[in-house]
Write a protein that binds this DNA or RNA. Structure first.
Length: 875
RNA sequence: AGUCCCCUAGCUCAGCUGGUUAGAGCGCUACCUUGACACGGUAGAGGUCAGCGGUUCGAGUCCGCUGGGGACUACCA
């Protein structure tokens, strides 16, 4: 039998209890059954480093909405959770931690340091689970994975070896992005560009054996110490005679050749003379190769100047070296001028350190053969990306992609499974090697580790047991939907597509939804310095997970998400509303779902048929919108229906019957049955958005299933559609609204009651109101509703939804304000009618517009005519 | 520099393949403690849909230009 709900909505009393009960019941864990239709999502694995922010709350709420919806819709649903070892980020965190003990990772040594990170990971990885739990995320925790765990590590080695054998992984010397702070190479996507107000230094380079000088310009004067050439355009008349001569590098006083290079030099730009620093600039590196210019490394891996920079500079940090170079150039008269020069500087996204282009020996993935099928998969529609606009961004990037630098000079990560022997052979192997397969000499393993994203790229299949043909892999792969932030489209999504296609022969997922960035109410990024950061756990503690989830969902259209306290407050009011409406319903419902039996539809009154019809329409809408990731539309459809149709109108309309002021016992029984039905369906509809409050209430309804999360998701049924009931209910609502409106405008209070005369277009409509007069009397507070009388002149006349009505106010002076109002109303209608008349007189319109549009215009025209006529009576 | 997106009520945003009277949330005004709810109810004010031009019987919606804002990619020394 039914129980009552607590008087006050207090999520803290039930959210955690409910989550624990779901998990204990095993609802999050799908069965391994290939016969059943499945639905799979893998979580974008959060970094093991620390707390979830609002962006995580968003992406995981959206996933949970889809997952709960699919699960209730009958799919064997797996949401696989896990975390990412996040190479650099995690290493940085632990380095900071040991720094407090006055230690560096070099003090500890590789083995001890990695051990420390593992300890740290064990302590912190459960925090992620706890936080996701508080949000209500229905992940299958029995399948939780970590990118460095054994199975995934094996997948990583397998893939590395395979790509190497296929010639798609190579080791070589190239110019890479080097982070002098993290002491590692990073890939192109990890470089972020920041706008800086830099300077452009113009420096004179004397020409050897002449008294001529050429002026070059540079933003990085310290690199001049590494110049090994000067380039001009071959067709530039100004410098033609200099080609083949030497310039004298100031400060270093070294002769360097002047070469002609059409690729590097744009004669229109600056002076048309360019310094060439093959060791410290990407373009100069290529230029150097073209002209056989030597490389001279003047900046070391740690960002300090090398001995080759000269003893004045050796050991100086690159920024100090810049000042010193500028000072010396000034002293010696080589510095011509310095101008402000705003430009973009590449920095390491993780630590904000300026990237140093550096020539070094690294491992790379030859990317084009992988990118091609990945482009095709999206182009062909095998994978769709939502919002669609991201597809062009994807193509743009994939078509111009460069080889992927995958080696990192870090200690935390998957150590590259390559083995070097003393004779210079390199072998790769899934299993550790002790001796060189070629010469039997002892081998040592490569010290570099792999880019974190190398292992994340395998996530959709490595987590399911691949490369073994495990039951999980066979059952749940490929996954269906991927939901993640657009910011990792290149880092992660693109790489999963490439790797998935290459190694499983299938797209790793068929649909991608990219969510936007969570911003504050003014559209600013959340940042600690502005102080506008919202911590999702704080919100959950204050108002509950449901309010936060709903707020995030209702704001998710595909673009960035504005989120603020007032918004959250607005939707926590909605949760409260659901609670209280349910409390009201539970006071009147006297049977539980198990014993309710089917609804006798033939005996339903119009208002009941109306609310069921509307609920049915909303059900169709929600399913439709969720299927295209319109979380906002789906959520607000629920919101509008529950609050503004069910609470504001249906409950109020049902009260006279429920409270025994109107109708028979049987009417009351039916009303209660419908109330139960609407509440049940609404809660199930809302459950993916608000798992906790819907479960807490639904438990009181006594359903067949032990939990709402495994109850079937509502689907629309044609039999519930009832346009006639909707038309009449709309008329009732509009008439009531008009009466309330005029009453207020005329300065009466809700306590003042009047008589109403009402007439429909035909007898059926008039009869409807004769039978349902109590609705108007109760909701519009009338003394009597007459369907055949005539109204006195001093009544207020109007036409609403085709019904002529007259509200019989006592003779009371109508203010000038009121008369003005009526006049404005008349003018508005006249204006509209005039434009409609013109439109309908236009044969181009009546001939070309679709018939229903023309018919609609005609109907509106006649309504306006009759309304105008009636309104004029009020003057 | 290239590509893309945005400009609709005071604020934040919806408006799908062009079609009746342009919507929501928050905020604002007035009234109401009515038996689920003041995290409430009722009613209301508020918009030349950035500007200009074009296509069309018809444009917030399609096309072009201008202005303003943003994102991504690349980067000229």
């Amino acid at each position: 039998m039914k129980e009552e709900l607590a008087t006050r909505y207090d999520p803290s009393t039930f959210e955690q209890r409910l989550y624990a009960s779901w998990e204990a019941a095993g609802y999050f864990t799908p069965v391994v059954d290939r016969e059943r239709p499945k639905f799979t999502i893998v979580i974008p694995p959060p970094n093991v480093t620390g707390r979830l922010h609002i962006g995580h709350a968003l992406v995981n709420t959206l996933q949970d909405i889809i997952v709960r919806w699919k699960r209730m819709s009958g799919y064997n649903t797996l949401w696989l959770p896990g975390t990412d070892h996040a190479g650099i980020a995690t290493q940085m965190v632990v380095e900071k931690q040991i720094a407090k003990e006055g230690l560096t990772r070099f003090d500890l040594g590789r083995e001890k340091f990695v051990e420390r990170i593992w300890q740290w990971k064990e302590q912190h990885s459960s925090e992620i689970k706890d936080q996701l739990t508080r949000l209500g995320a229905s992940c299958d925790w029995t399948r939780e994975r970590f990118t460095l765990d054994e199975g995934l590590s094996r997948a990583v080695r397998y893939v590395f070896v395979k790509l190497y054998e296929d010639g798609l992984i190579y080791r070589g010397i190239a110019m890479v992005n080097w982070c002098p702070r993290c002491l590692t190479a990073i890939s192109d996507v990890e470089v972020e560009f920041r706008e800086r107000n830099g300077k452009l230094y113009h420096i004179d380079y004397p020409i050897a054996d002449t008294d001529r000088r050429v002026t070059i310009a540079t933003t990085r004067p310290e690199t001049m110490l590494g110049d090994t050439g000067v380039a001009v355009h071959p067709d530039d008349e100004r410098y033609k005679d200099l080609i083949g001569r030497n310039a004298i590098l100031p400060i270093a006083n070294r002769p360097i050749p002047i070469v002609a290079d059409a690729i590097l030099v744009d004669p229109e730009f600056g002076t048309g003379v360019v310094k060439v620093t093959p060791s410290h600039d990407k373009n100069d590196y290529e230029t150097g190769k073209r002209h056989n210019l030597p490389q001279l490394q003047v900046i070391a891996e740690d960002g300090r100047m090398t001995a080759a920079a000269g003893k004045d500079f050796e050991g100086l940090d690159r920024s100090d070296a810049r000042k010193r170079v500028v000072d010396l150039l000034t002293e010696q008269g080589y510095l011509v001028k310095v101008e402000d020069h705003p430009h973009n500087v590449g920095v390491h996204g993780k630590c904000d350190t300026d990237i140093e282009p550096m020539v070094s020996l690294q491992w790379f993935v030859k990317i084009e053969p992988l990118a091609k099928p990945a482009i095709e998969a999206v182009r062909s529609g095998a994978i769709t990306i939502t919002p669609e606009t991201w597809e062009s961004t994807y193509f743009n990037w994939m078509e111009n992609i460069h080889d992927w630098t995958i080696s990192r000079q870090l200690w935390w990560g998957h150590r590259i499974p390559a083995f070097h022997c003393t004779n210079g052979h390199t072998s790769v192997s899934v299993d550790d090697l002790v001796t060189c397969p070629e010469c039997q000499a002892p081998v040592t393993q490569e010290t570099d580790v792999l880019d974190t994203w190398f292992s994340s790229g395998l996530w959709p299949f490595s987590t399911l047991g691949w490369p073994d043909p495990t039951p999980d892999f066979e059952t749940f792969y490929p996954t269906d939907t991927l939901i993640t932030g657009f910011d990792i489209l290149f880092f992660w999504v693109a790489r999963m597509i490439m790797m998935g296609l290459r190694f499983t022969g299938q797209p790793p997922f068929t649909r991608v939804f990219l969510n936007g960035l969570v911003r504050d109410e003014q559209g600013r990024k959340m940042s600690k310095t502005i102080g506008n950061v919202i911590d999702p756990l704080d919100v959950v503690n204050e108002v509950g997970a449901d309010a936060l989830r709903f707020t995030l969902a209702v704001a998710t259209s595909g673009r960035d998400i504005p989120l603020g306290k007032s918004r959250i407050a607005g939707y926590s009011a909605f949760v409260n509303k659901i609670w209280n409406a349910s409390r009201f319903a539970l006071m009147h419902i006297d049977t539980d779902l198990k014993h309710a039996g089917p609804i006798d539809r033939d005996r339903l009154r119009t208002v009941e048929r109306w609310i069921l019809s509307r609920l049915n329409a909303v059900t169709a809408e929600v399913n439709e919108q969720l299927s295209v990731f319109r979380f906002d539309e789906a959520a607000s459809a629920c919101y509008q229906f529950f609050w503004h149709e069910f609470c504001d109108w249906y409950i109020e309309m049902a009260k006279p019957v429920l409270l025994g002021r109107h109708g028979s016992d049987n009417d009351r029984k039916l009303a209660k049955r419908v109330l139960l039905e609407v509440l049940d369906r609404s809660l199930r509809l809302l459950h993916p958005f608000m798992p906790f409050v819907t479960e807490e209430i639904w438990q009181k309804l006594g359903g067949v299933e032990p939990s709402i999360m495994i109850a079937p998701y509502p689907i629309a049924e044609d039999v519930l559609e009832d346009p006639e009931a909707e038309r009449l209910a709309d008329a009732v609502k509009a008439i009531i609204t008009t009466i309330r409106n005029v009453r207020a405008e005329r300065g009466f209070t809700p306590k003042d009651r009047f008589r109403l005369t009402l007439r429909g277009n035909d007898d059926r409509d008039t009869n409807f109101f004769r039978e349902n007069a109590y609705l108007l009397m109760e909701l519009a507070r009338l003394t009597e509703v007459s369907t055949d009388g005539t109204a006195p002149d001093h009544a207020h006349h109007d036409v609403v939804e085709g019904f002529r009505l007259a509200i019989e106010f006592p003779e009371k002076e109508v203010s000038q304000e009121q008369l003005d109002r009526v006049r404005r109303e008349i003018e508005k209608s006249e204006k509209e009618l005039a434009s409609l008349d013109a439109k309908l007189a236009n044969e181009q319109f009546t001939g070309n517009a679709p018939p229903q549009i023309v018919a609609g215009a005609r109907a509106r025209q006649s309504e306006l005519r009759s309304r105008l006529e009636t309104l004029r009576k009020n003057q």
